[in-house]
Amino acid sequence: MDRAASSDESLNVLARQVSEHAEALVEVWSEAARAADPRLSSLQLQALLITHRCPGINLTGMAERVGAAPPTVSRLCDRLEAAGLLMRHRATTNRREIGLTLTARGREMLDALSERRFRAIRGVLQHVPAAQREALVAGLRSFTDATGAVDATDMGR
């Protein structure tokens, strides 16, 4: 086996291991979201998180980010607005454009979710040896940094 094939195989093994072990982290992370009040779908939660990161985002921008059609996103925002989590407003730069922002209740809900996730992860980390905690953070930091180098269309291939 040549060096390139060996490198590809090593990367395949590593990717499989990361995928398998990441499931536990994703499960802890997701379990905290399932306890959210009000209970939100993953798409609703994603929309709130995007609005938090990009206050004033318009419906078209939201549709692109969540990968849904604008009418679907409009209905999604209707439900979030009815729940008191999201607010629509006319954009200052273009009167025809509708911007989205979180309400105080929406921010409180996301803060509570963040705190639940923090406590859940902390609870698991208590059972990880200290030296491995540092290695975990270093590995996750490297993974996060590398995601910036990957084109979104390449993720999932």
Rank of each mutant, 00 (worst) to 15 (best):
V13S: 11
A15K: 08
R16G: 13
R16P: 05
E20W: 10
H21F: 15
E23V: 12
V26P: 00
V28N: 04
V28H: 07
W29V: 05
W29R: 08
S30Q: 11
S30L: 09
E31W: 12
A32E: 04
A33Y: 01
A33G: 03
R34L: 12
A35T: 12
A36M: 14
D37H: 14
P38F: 05
P38W: 05
R39S: 13
R39C: 09
R39M: 09
L40N: 06
S41L: 08
S42P: 02
L43V: 15
L43C: 11
Q44C: 06
Q44Y: 04
Q46N: 14
L48P: 01
L48T: 07
L48N: 02
L49I: 06
L49A: 07
I50T: 11
T51S: 03
T51G: 00
H52V: 11
H52N: 15
C54K: 15
C54V: 14
C54W: 13
P55F: 04
G56C: 10
G56T: 05
I57D: 01
L59I: 14
L59Q: 09
L59T: 12
G61P: 06
G61I: 07
M62H: 05
M62D: 03
A63S: 15
E64P: 02
R65D: 01
R65L: 10
R65N: 05
R65S: 06
V66Y: 00
G67A: 08
A69E: 14
A69N: 12
A69F: 09
A69T: 11
A69V: 08
P71L: 08
P71F: 04
P71H: 05
T72S: 11
S74M: 05
R75E: 05
R75G: 05
R75L: 08
L76E: 00
L76W: 00
L76I: 00
C77D: 03
D78S: 12
D78A: 08
L80G: 07
L80P: 03
E81V: 02
E81S: 07
A83R: 12
A83V: 04
G84P: 02
L85C: 10
L85W: 01
M87A: 13
M87V: 12
H89G: 08
H89R: 13
R90F: 04
A91Q: 06
T92V: 10
T92R: 04
T93S: 15
T93V: 15
R95S: 12
R95F: 10
R95H: 10
E97T: 15
E97C: 13
E97D: 09
E97A: 14
E97Q: 15
I98G: 00
L100P: 03
L100T: 12
L100V: 13
L102W: 04
L102Q: 04
L102N: 06
L102C: 06
T103M: 02
T103S: 06
T103N: 02
T103R: 01
G106Y: 00
G106V: 04
G106Q: 03
R107A: 15
D111V: 04
A112R: 14
L113S: 02
S114V: 01
E115G: 03
E115M: 10
R119M: 13
A120Y: 00
A120F: 02
A120L: 04
I121H: 11
I121E: 07
I121F: 15
I121T: 09
R122V: 11
